[in-house]
Amino acid sequence: MRIVLQVVSRAAVTVADRTVGEIDGPGLLALVGVTHTDTPETAVKLAEKVAGLRILPGETSCADRPAPMLVVSQFTLYGDVRRGRRPSWSHAAPGEVSEPLFEAFVRAVRDRGVTVETGEFGAHMEVSLVNDGPLTVIVDSDELERPRRG
């Protein structure tokens, strides 16, 4: 899984001019991509990491405050642009694989006491946000598995 986290003062996602998820912050917007090797355990591990990251004002986390999180599925996080002029999406898991893992991530974040709003899986969404800081970090399951240097 690959997650782009943005600290926001507010964020919303709409589908066909209908707001499907909205938060007032401070909180986090989490754009979540799923790849072929991800498992339910990956989803839980990243949910624990994301909910506990102390990146909100006052070095607090969503679980500490509690602060809301807007979670949006985004397969394009696994776009590969190394060759040619068109991205390849081959590293993104198909919907039948990624949707249950996305939902497992959302459940695991909620299990940590965080209020979670979501987008609509597979829909064309418009995401609006006010990035606070700005503070944006990327959390990648591959990075959690590697030993740290130095």
Rank of each mutant, 00 (worst) to 15 (best):
V4R: 05
V4S: 06
V4F: 07
V4Y: 07
L5E: 04
L5R: 04
L5V: 09
Q6H: 09
Q6G: 08
V7W: 04
V7A: 03
V8K: 04
S9G: 10
S9E: 12
S9K: 04
S9W: 03
S9M: 07
R10E: 15
A11I: 01
A11T: 03
V13R: 01
V13M: 10
T14Q: 11
T14W: 05
V15H: 13
V15C: 14
V15W: 13
V15T: 10
A16V: 14
A16L: 14
D17Y: 00
R18F: 00
T19H: 13
T19A: 15
V20P: 12
V20A: 14
G21F: 06
G21P: 08
G21D: 06
E22L: 09
I23H: 05
I23T: 05
I23K: 04
I23R: 03
I23W: 05
D24F: 02
G25K: 03
P26S: 10
P26V: 06
P26W: 05
P26C: 10
P26Y: 08
G27V: 02
G27C: 05
L28V: 07
L28P: 04
L28N: 01
L28C: 07
L29F: 02
L29S: 03
L29W: 03
L29P: 02
L29M: 10
L29T: 01
A30E: 06
A30F: 08
L31C: 07
V32T: 00
V32I: 09
G33A: 09
V34C: 11
V34S: 06
V34G: 06
T35C: 15
T35Y: 12
T35S: 15
T35M: 13
H36P: 12
H36W: 12
D38A: 09
D38L: 10
D38M: 08
T39S: 13
P40G: 07
P40V: 07
P40A: 00
P40D: 12
E41K: 13
E41T: 15
E41R: 14
T42P: 07
T42S: 12
T42Q: 10
A43V: 08
A43K: 00
A43H: 05
V44H: 09
V44I: 09
K45N: 02
K45M: 12
K45T: 12
K45E: 15
A47Q: 11
A47F: 11
A47I: 12
E48F: 10
E48C: 13
E48P: 06
A51N: 08
A51Q: 06
G52L: 00
G52E: 07
G52W: 02
L53P: 03
R54W: 02
R54N: 14
I55E: 12
I55W: 12
L56S: 01
P57N: 14
P57S: 15
P57D: 12
P57K: 11
G58I: 04
G58M: 09
E59I: 03
E59M: 14
E59K: 08
T60D: 14
T60G: 14
T60I: 14
T60Q: 15
S61G: 09
S61K: 10
C62P: 05
A63M: 15
A63N: 10
R65V: 10
R65D: 05
R65L: 10
P66S: 02
P66R: 08
P66Q: 00
P66C: 10
